[in-house]
Every structure is written in structure tokens, then in C-alpha cells.
């Protein structure tokens, strides 16, 4: 598989930062960075990462099922993650999540037909004191309200 030069550079560095012979350590970081570029963890990516890290593809299969941020199906261009864990729950995270479902017309881990948005109800993401929180791809949004979420979605739609 070929990746962007930036990703290749990251991979190259990853293979050097762990102790000699411990390149298996790079499996999860490689998958994380690669899925952003590839869209999700494809079979091809599994084999590629296995090859580069010198592990069996099954050992990659073992981890992709384990880590909740590794996805084997493509997500939307904007992956909207709404936290409903305790601090967010107490401040309206659940209502926010229900609202997002309605606005986007999709359920948990589903993608809008245009592929623009996907939605996920997530566990605590470390924004409890500024709850309720939403993460879009890797960007945090704090003290989110239904109105703020609507505006955010509109802005993203315009951005395409």
C-alpha cells in the first residue's frame, strides 16, 4: 500500500522509537494514523501493518476488535462523537445525543447517505468539567447545546 509522504515519515519514525525487535509496538499507532488517511481499517491495511511490524495478520485482527477507535467500516467525513457518560449525562448529554440522531437521521455508528456524517455515542472523553461535550473527528467542543450542535453541523455541511 502507498501512503502520503507525511504518513510514511510517521511510520518510519514509529519503527525506530521502540526497543530493537519490538516493532510490534507500532501496530496500534500505525492503524490509528493510517485509518485517518485510508478511511477505515481495511483488510489490505491489516496485512500491510502486519508486514511492516513483522507480526501475523491475526495479531492485528486481535487488536482491531479490542480498541474502540479502530473501525473496519468507513465513517463519515465528520465523525460526531457525543459523550453520554456520567458528567455529560447530568448536563444533558443524552438529550444532545438524541437530538443529533434526529438532526442527522442516523443511529449509533451509522453514516449519512452522503457519507458526510457519522454518529457515535461515546464513553467519557475527558471533558467532564466542560460538559456536555462532543468531539468531531479530533476536535473537542465544550458546553454543547442542541442549538450549538445544529450550527456546528450546518457549518460542516457548508465546508463539505
Amino acid at each position: 500500500m502507498t501512503f502520503s509522504p507525511a504518513l510514511e515519515a510517521r511510520f518510519a519514525k514509529l519503527l525506530t522509537i521502540y526497543p530493537e525487535g519490538r516493532q510490534r509496538s507500532a501496530v496500534v499507532p500505525m492503524l490509528m494514523y493510517a485509518q485517518d488517511e485510508v478511511g477505515c481499517v481495511t483488510r489490505e491495511l491489516v496485512e500491510e501493518v502486519a508486514r511492516r511490524c513483522g507480526v501475523q495478520p491475526m495479531q492485528v485482527d486481535e487488536v482491531i476488535g479490542y480498541y474502540s477507535m479502530l473501525h473496519t467500516k468507513p465513517l463519515g467525513k465528520y465523525h460526531i462523537q457525543v459523550c453520554t457518560n456520567i458528567s455529560c449525562l447530568l448536563t444533558g448529554g443524552e438529550e444532545l445525543y438524541e437530538h443529533a440522531k434526529k438532526t442527522l437521521g442516523i443511529g449509533n455508528k451509522e453514516v449519512t447517505p452522503d457519507g458526510l456524517f457519522s454518529l457515535e455515542e461515546v464513553e467519557c472523553m475527558g471533558a467532564c468539567s466542560w460538559a456536555p461535550a462532543v468531539e468531531v473527528n479530533y476536535d473537542f467542543h465544550h458546553h454543547v447545546t442542541c442549538e450549538k450542535l445544529d450550527r456546528l453541523i450546518e457549518d460542516l455541511r457548508k465546508l463539505k
Binding site: R43, Q56, P57, M58, D61, E62, V63, G65, Y66
Partner: peptide, 19 residues
């Protein structure tokens, strides 16, 4: 090492080496 395990919690599941 033809068998492994994937997923976690109650969904944890034994898997074969060729996917």
C-alpha cells in the same frame, strides 16, 4: 499460534489465523 482473540468484554471472541 493459529488461534487468537479479538473484541473485548462479553463480545471477546476466539479467531482463526486466516481471518
Amino acid at each position: 499460534t493459529a488461534l487468537g482473540i479479538t473484541n473485548r468484554g462479553v463480545l471477546a471472541e476466539i479467531i482463526p489465523n486466516e481471518h
